[in-house]
């Protein structure tokens, strides 16, 4: 059964059409990697999944709930969808632990102790137990991104969205973040990841989507995608990012 289903999604910024009739789905336990050139609409697409961006046409259905329908309780739906951003977006005025407990307490209504216990467990899991009382600005990029993943996991999400989680990182920090993501995938988390880390895609993706100029050009099983990408644009893109 589909966890995320996208049907004929179109979105415009003024007269500029940023998404053109995009359809795809992510099944429970599936990992789908989205790649494509800069400006092709990947961030916009993934932000439409939990309606951080509004869209004008089409439908997104998460766990059977239509995201764009007027009656949908968006905050409640978003609370069940974890999201990790390119620039981490930790809350700089809150400590690492407060970053992890804020949503649990304010959105899920958990008690402070329960939220803290959960926060400690997740920090341990991403290897940052000692950093709990620090502030985001005191951590390296890789550490911040691991905290951001922990913050999303603290909400016990049914699926996770990643928007280029490693592209703002120094090269030596990319793997510490990818390791956490690989582990998540192997545990069966449903994931939709915008990423150009093809090593990651080869390791854990079920499918790879290639976007260009607002369109989903390829949507193929991993084996097919890396074996023989059908479109010329996808081939060009792959040869560029693989030979750098």
């Amino acid at each position: 059964m589909a966890m995320i289903e996208m049907k004929n999604l179109s979105k415009w910024y003024g007269s500029f059409q940023v998404l053109k009739d995009c359809s795809t789905r992510v099944d429970r336990g599936e990992v789908v990697v989205v790649c494509g050139p800069s400006g092709s609409g990947k961030s916009t697409l993934i932000k439409c999944v939990n309606a951080l961006e509004r869209f004008q046409q089409g439908e997104v259905i998460i766990d059977g709930i239509s995201v764009g329908a007027p009656g949908t309780d968006l905050p409640r739906l978003r609370a069940r969808v974890g999201m990790v951003f390119q620039h981490f977006e930790l809350f700089p005025h809150l400590s690492i632990m407060e970053n992890l407990t804020l949503g649990q307490i304010r959105v899920l209504g958990r008690g402070a102790d329960e939220a803290r216990d959960k926060g400690v467990k997740l920090l341990e899991r991403v290897g940052l137990r000692e950093q709990a009382e620090k502030f985001p600005g005191q951590l390296s990029g890789g550490q911040q991104q691991r905290v951001a993943i922990a913050r999303a996991l603290a909400m016990d999400p049914m699926c996770m969205l990643f928007d280029e989680p490693t592209s703002a990182l120094d090269p030596e920090m990319i793997n510490e973040v990818l390791d956490v993501m690989v582990e998540l995938a192997q545990e069966g988390m449903t994931m939709m990841c915008v990423s150009h880390e093809m090593g990651f895609a080869r390791k854990v993706a079920n499918r790879v989507i290639f976007m260009d100029r607002g369109e989903i050009v390829e949507d193929a099983l991993k084996e097919d995608f890396f074996g023989k990408p059908r479109s010329e644009r996808a081939q060009q893109f792959l040869s560029k990012i693989l030979h750098h």
Binding site: M83, H87, E89, F91
Partner: peptide, 29 residues
């Protein structure tokens, strides 16, 4: 930054919670 609002909303905070807990404290500081 806009990203802070996205992050608050993505956690399930409402518009007013995002303002009160995320945006205004940083704006004030």
């Amino acid at each position: 930054s806009r990203g802070q609002v996205y992050a608050g909303n993505a956690l399930g905070l409402t518009y007013f919670q995002t303002m009160r807990l995320i945006v205004l404290p940083q704006a004030f500081r």
